[in-house]
Design a protein around this nucleic acid. Sequence first.
DNA 1: AGCACGCCGACT
DNA 2: GTCGGCGTGCTC
Length: 805
Amino acid sequence: MAQIAQVLVDVPTMQTNRPYSYQIPTAWQSQVQPGMRVVVPFGRGKRRVQGLVLTCDDVTTFDGDLKAIDAVVDLAPVLNQEGLQLSAWLAQTTFAFQITCAQTMLPAVMRAKYEKILRPTAQTSTAVQTEIFQGQLEVNYDQLATTPQAVSRLLRLQAAGEVDVYYQVKNQARRKTVLGIQSTLSAADLDTELAAVRKGAAKQVALLKGLQTLNGEVITQKDFHQRFDVSEAVIRTGEQKGWLTRPAIEVYRDPYATADIQPTKPLHLNDEQQVAVDQIVAAVDQPATTTFLLEGVTGSGKTEVYLQSIAAALAQGKTALMLVPEISLTPQMVKRVKGRFGKAVAVLHSGLSSGEKYDEWRRIQRHEAQVVVGARSAVFAPLENIGLIIMDEEHESSYKQDDAPRYHARQVALWRSQYHHCPVVLGSATPSLESRARAEKGVYQRLVLADRVNQRPLPKVSIIDMKNELQKHAESNFSQALLVALQDRLDRHEQSVLMLNRRGYSSFVLCRDCGFVLKCPNCDISLTLHMDTHTMKCHYCGHEEAIPRICPNCHSHKIRYYGTGTEKVEEELRDLLPDARIIRMDNDTTRKKGAHAKLLTQFGSGEADILIGTQMIAKGLDFPNVTLVGVLNADTALGLPDFRASERTFQLLTQVSGRAGRAEKTGHVYIQTFNPDHYAIRFAQHHDYEGFFKYEMRMRHQGGYPPYYFTVQITASDLDEAIAAKRMYQLLQWLKPRLSSQTVILGPTPKPIARVNRRYYYQIVIKYKQEPQLTATLSTLLQETQAQQRQGLQIAIDVEPLHFM
DNA sequence: AGCACGCCGACT
DNA sequence: GTCGGCGTGCTC
């Protein structure tokens, strides 16, 4: 019987990033298991924290008095062996604390909430009773300790034994229950009672007959009411008579309970799709793990390949995981999967409430769901016996998490596929260079869907040189050609989609007299004008202030709004095409929950002629009546100091082009740009992924960038710019002798946006091909910069960062 | 993180 | 003399 547990405590710091040994109280020795959450005392005071049991055994290397586990939170482990191993691997590869990794893998409600509470003791004087407790049995510490004086007073009272501190560790996870109905009568008793009921008591008869029908089964009161038409009052009478009990029945919060989901049948596959499905399915029960790269243009039927492969995995008694970018996890998408697999599907995405996420998670853990569809973090879904992992739109940068643990869902998917010996399918119309290059080398197996399912030609793409436009016409967001095309669609009652590349293209205010630009007081960037709230906002720290009427610098009245946000584009378009009905979709109009879906439904049902939006409209939407797609500014991303700028531009343009003409009508795409000859734009015009891949690989080779090199980014930030810079140079000196001579170190450089939230950022990028000691070196680095973290210097390591600014 | 311990300056 | 300021080290 295990007496000692190795516990990971919920204290995310470098020093506590290791297991601590705790005594398991005798009464719980058969109960406590690895993967369960516990409450343990930690530290010299009375602090109590949540912990995660890693192992249970009889020995410890710690030679001191062990403390005992205070409480066991779970009845069953929340992480199984796979989960525990995965959290350890994740911590190691992303340089994050293991407890942080474990928390990331679990539903947010499982994170403990802490409360510090004061209670009176036997020695508490009446003065303190009235002053502090005011008749209460306990009071919240934080509510009293608002000033330094109050804190020291409480500290003294505690030392004098007048008050007792107590740490409450709260589990936020709540199950939802409803009242149920359970008969307490045997079949014979029921007959007796039925015979005894007074004549004319029709409802009581109905109740008893209902209980008879149940035959001992428990159902919810609501269902009972619906099936037997017996009101709650009658049921309560029955309860008083001792005929039944009303136990609390656990129910799942189902986000799609009210959705109208029609069953869908597998579609007929074309030859290419059939080949893909056959290859994937053949790999499901192979002991070796195969990673497929499924390349298919928009409309080539990738989703059907996924669904039929999943069906085959389920038929073998296995489970399946399907990852989708957050933005394409639309209700239509969910309906399609649920329509095929029904109740076996669990959905996980950020739009769910924390309770809904918790319930979906438990359905998966209890093997009630065998198919999981979800965004990035769904890659941690507690599925067992996985037969297939699918990652759609594998090039999407939203698969990488921006803060700790900085993991890429693709890496996690590959790790889990090794664990389960199952295949992974990476699907995309425009695979990331990394994945496509691996397919080239034979690491991944390439599957290609070159034909569109209905043999429809890809849309014609026209490139409009905005340099010429500017010379011919006054400054406008719309070229003549695009306007003519828009008017033409209006006349034909067809719809258009206009995309504005948002990055670096928002409205700001500028003084025409002195050139002053209103900037954020905390960050290094100009404030953005928001007409909806009539304020200036900082997109990085959330700072907000009033729109200036006069220039704060020279007091001139000639302060004007510049730049082009979606709002301004909409305004201009309303001027140019007054008859057009326009829907705008951007961060402002979609902030409210469900607003995104609502706007899309409106557009889909023909309530508008033109949809204007940012990148978010490029993905996943499929409206048959859209025959025109316009990209207003194709090249704003191209100017960014990031080697992936071309790749992103190409992917975005290809993706948005796919929105045109998906049904009976062929589409036309207009791309407005100041760089009409840029290769990313030219290859996108001809829908030529292969051409782009080859060209871009040459560029990456010349520049020494991924996939030819691996990269690691180290960022340091401090409130004091000089300290951040100085530490970075010290770090560089420390690092240099520890890396091989082929490895390139870029920087330190201030980040392009050097100051965010009053902190100054500096970065180093390491580019390497072979560096076996790198992980160990970086771990040491983190360990050694510990003391400085205390002084306010923050150091972050990002392995294979997606953004270099 | 959060707490105790310890070492210094300005007060009842 | 002591209260309380913060720097330092530790948490099974």
